[in-house]
């Protein structure tokens, strides 16, 4: 088991190097270090010396991938790519263009992100599974049909409409929640209601339909037939047997997204003015702040790989027949 985890973690290294390569290549096709210096220094009265100095101070005066002036191994190591990405591997993200420490910013912003993403995930799971069970319970009645049609209809609406509609109705017309903003601590609750609600509602169509299919598949299995033959009530079959067995694929499917919850949602956060990592990323893209973009991409990859690992581990926990090699 431990050996397996170690090997998987080692396997992550080439992936992360690849990710960094792609980020660097894409970013520097678009921007030269000179551009970055200009953005940092502002538009008015920028001299060539100031740009050179900025590049030197921030370590952007080296060649990107190959340093012809250095000797030996340094040709490859004394480059922008190696110097900048090595520090990422020890989670030293450096400073953003505005001089703020990225690592500190990430640690601060991760909590608002989590405060939205986690309730959204949990409430979402509860709601979707309840709805799906409801539809399965009433299967082959008009309620099931109507439910499925409603799901498809809900699926066909762009998520943006839910956000716009939610802010308009709950925030503006009915005065029930603040339209946007955030406060730390317990006060956060009133700010989280709307984003979480929007997050849950926008997923209803697709997820309910998916879980319904999952449950129906389970219903056709032998053990359900056996249970029914024993004369168990429909509700008992559904809640005790079907739900219990279907939870395994549901939960293992959820595990993969858990680490990425920290990154937050790009759209929801910027619409609702939540100071999380999602809006941090969006702002960084808009401002072309490479240090932040690089850090967020790296972090995203790490968390994704972590999610994959957790998924594999959860399989073994759930099903002893699966063995990790």
């Amino acid at each position: 088991m431990t050996a397996y985890i170690v090997r998987r973690l080692l396997y992550a290294i080439p992936i992360l190097i690849g990710v960094n390569l792609i980020t660097f290549a894409l970013f520097f096709i678009v921007n030269t270090p000179d551009d970055m210096a200009r953005i940092h220094l502002g538009a008015k009265h920028v001299t060539a010396e100031a740009i050179e100095r900025w590049k030197r101070e921030h370590g952007y005066d080296k060649p990107l991938f190959y340093n012809g002036e250095a000797a030996g191994v340094a040709r490859l190591t004394d480059t922008l790519f190696v110097q900048k990405s090595l520090r990422l591997f020890v989670f030293d993200f450096g400073q953003a263009d505005d001089g703020r420490d990225i690592g500190r910013e990430i640690r601060e912003r991760m909590w608002p992100s989590l405060a939205i993403a986690l309730p959204t995930l949990l409430t979402g799971l509860a709601v979707y599974i309840s709805f799906a069970l409801l539809l399965v319970f009433f299967r082959a009645t008009y309620l099931d049909l109507a439910g499925v049609v409603l799901c498809v209809v809900l699926m066909s609406i762009s998520g943006l409409f839910y956000v716009i509609g939610g802010q308009y109705l709950l925030g503006k017309l009915w005065n029930l929640v603040p339209i946007s903003g955030y406060q730390p601590g317990l006060d956060a609750v009133k700010f989280l209601v709307l984003p979480v609600l929007v997050g849950v509602v926008s997923g209803i169509g697709e997820s309910t339909r998916f879980y319904r299919t999952l449950f129906l598949e389970e219903m056709h299995k032998d053990y359900v037939r056996t249970a029914r033959a024993k004369g168990l009530a429909e509700s008992v079959v559904l809640f005790r047997h079907v739900l219990g067995n279907a939870m395994i694929p549901i939960l293992t499917g959820v595990v993969v997204v858990i680490p990425r919850l920290f990154l937050g949602s790009l759209i929801v956060e910027s619409f609702f003015g939540i100071p999380g990592l999602g809006s941090y990323t969006i702002d960084a893209i808009a401002a072309q702040d490479f240090a932040i973009v690089r850090a967020m991409v790296f972090l995203g990859s790490v968390l994704y790989i972590l999610g994959l690992l957790l998924t594999d581990l959860s399989y073994t926990l759930v099903d002893p027949r699966v063995r990790l090699e």
Binding site: G171, N175, L176, V177, P178, I179, S180, G181, Q183, L186, D187, V189, K190, F191, V193
Partner: peptide
């Protein structure tokens, strides 16, 4: 929770 959290208007973004 909301009702418990604040005394004034529900949509008040401040303390």
């Amino acid at each position: 929770l909301l009702l418990a959290a604040c005394g004034g208007p529900l949509n008040n973004p401040y303390a």
